[in-house]
């Protein structure tokens, strides 16, 4: 149990770091989605099933879709 938790926490911090580190938005969003999935697993470990379900559908599912649809229409560089 403890080992699994430590591995997950390392993944969590790593994906958060990567989400902040990369300048490309797409990669950041993918890492944010991974972050949410790892967080879901951690919530399950901490015996919070409802919150885990909410984090899975909202954090990993819906937020990713909304972020993607946002960056799909953002133009870069050409200011008019």
């Amino acid at each position: 149990m403890a080992v699994l938790e430590i591995i997950l926490v390392i993944f969590l911090v790593f994906s958060a770091l990567m989400a902040v580190y990369f300048d490309e938005e797409l990669i950041s969003i993918i890492f944010l989605s991974i972050f949410s999935l790892v967080l879901t697993a951690l919530y399950l470990l901490h015996k919070a099933a409802d919150v885990a379900l909410a984090e899975a559908v909202i954090g990993a599912g819906l937020n990713t879709a909304i972020f993607m649809s946002a960056i799909s229409q953002i133009r870069h560089g050409d200011s008019d």
Binding site: V20, D23, E25, L32, L39, L42, A70
Partner: peptide, 27 residues
């Protein structure tokens, strides 16, 4: 970060940090 999308990602991370702490602490 000067990129606004990255700022929103940062906000999301902060929220997730608070929620994670609450759940972990109440366990």
């Amino acid at each position: 970060k000067t990129n606004l999308i990255k700022n929103v990602i940062g906000l999301n991370l902060m929220e997730a940090a608070v929620f994670f702490w609450v759940i972990a602490f109440s366990d």
